[in-house]
Design a protein around this nucleic acid. Structure first.
Lengths: 204, 204
DNA sequence: TTAATATGTTTAATATACTTATCATAGGTT
DNA sequence: AACCTATGATAAGTATATTAAACATATTAA
């Protein structure tokens, strides 16, 4: 169990660690998770109700486990299947971002959307610092994409439409919804509106 | 293909839809995803390079697919395994939250952490509106938990320590890191510090 | 109606995952 | 050293997933 992975930049990682970045290598992924939790194959197999041989074979990628047995194994850790596939143990090495390091990714000149840390792949959350000019609007054709999003209004007011609901949110108010629901942001006021928002997963 | 799921409150959902809420029923999950994308078993099987019989059996939960074949099938949609297990088609029906509907979940009286929408389960992101009093500090024993987190400083300054890195962030600056790295927030200034942050997954 | 096409389901054969039991290596104790 | 315990790997047998092909039902068109 070596673990501190997180403190080394990407280019220093071993092959074993690198491979954690893609979804393909279930074996290595399971092995790393198991070791992070300080478990042996046998101890995990006991907790999970499978044999140690099965875990050995899976970790070597000599078999592709069924969902049911993978679930049993992860229950022994315990960890959800969803977490297992989601977790990205290789963290990016940049942690701090000054205001001017956040590129504006909006296509609309009346809306500014500053992306925290640039278009980094493999993040669970995307954080935006948004500015809506008076009268700006994401448009009549409602937005729809995967994931969920939420945010808090810092300054000014925004009219948010989500599905068949509509409301004007002002400084201090927040929102949260599944991004699959058609939605639209508009600033009907005479003042600029500032929002901090978060999306999952990143779509840019 | 009925779909609009999202616009009906939970108690109106059919059994088929309800079952999407838990991770167990892979079959129904696959079936619903397939139908949302408007595919027949045969068409999906053609795209994925598996037989339609296999998809039929999986959807009936008469077999538990191997990761490899589940991946092949999802590639035909296309959808990642991680998304498949993560996606929660039953959205919560509350979307808007006024400032006073955000409960303070901090245990430290010098730090205020207002949780957007209360402690709702099953969300991909948790959004917090945080206020750090002058001199406040999350403490010498560093924080560590699962997921990732990021945020933007709205007002004042905060000293953030992440692993062996430390920096003072001021209004407009941001941060993002894997929450598994030991971290600490402190306000060394004489002014209050206000932050909007997002975590994934929620730990409260 | 009849034929033709498309859908999801089922059955028997085959391929693969999983178990049981054994093997090989490493570390600790006397 | 010899012995014990624990680790991960392996081989052969068993259980299960997947395929190939047929079945059943519904829809459309002539």
């Amino acid at each position: 169990m070596t673990l501190p992975l997180y403190f080394r930049p990407t280019w220093e990682l071993t092959d074993t660690e690198q491979v954690m970045k893609n979804d393909e290598d279930i074996g290595k992924r399971l092995q790393l998770v198991r070791k992070i939790y300080g478990l042996t194959q046998r101890e995990l197999s006991r907790r999970a109700g499978v044999t140690n041989g099965a875990i050995s074979l899976i970790e070597q990628n000599r078999v592709s486990p069924s969902i049911s047995s993978l679930k049993k194994i992860l229950d022994g850790i315990p960890m959800s299947i969803s977490d297992f596939f989601t977790l990205d143990l290789v963290a990016s090495d940049s942690v701090f971002f000054s205001a001017d390091e956040m590129p504006d990714i909006s296509l609309d000149k009346n809306i500014m959307m500053c992306l925290l840390g640039g278009p980094t792949k493999g993040r669970a959350i995307q954080i935006l610092h948004e500015y809506y000019q008076p009268g700006s609007d994401t448009g009549e054709t409602m937005l729809r994409h995967h994931g969920e999003e939420g945010g808090v209004v810092i300054e000014g007011c925004i009219e948010l439409t989500v599905g068949d609901k509509k409301k004007v949110l002002c400084s201090g108010d927040g929102y949260y919804f599944s991004s699959q629901i058609p939605h639209r942001f508009a600033n009907p006021s005479d003042d600029i509106c500032e929002i901090i928002s978060a999306n999952s997963p990143p779509t840019f």
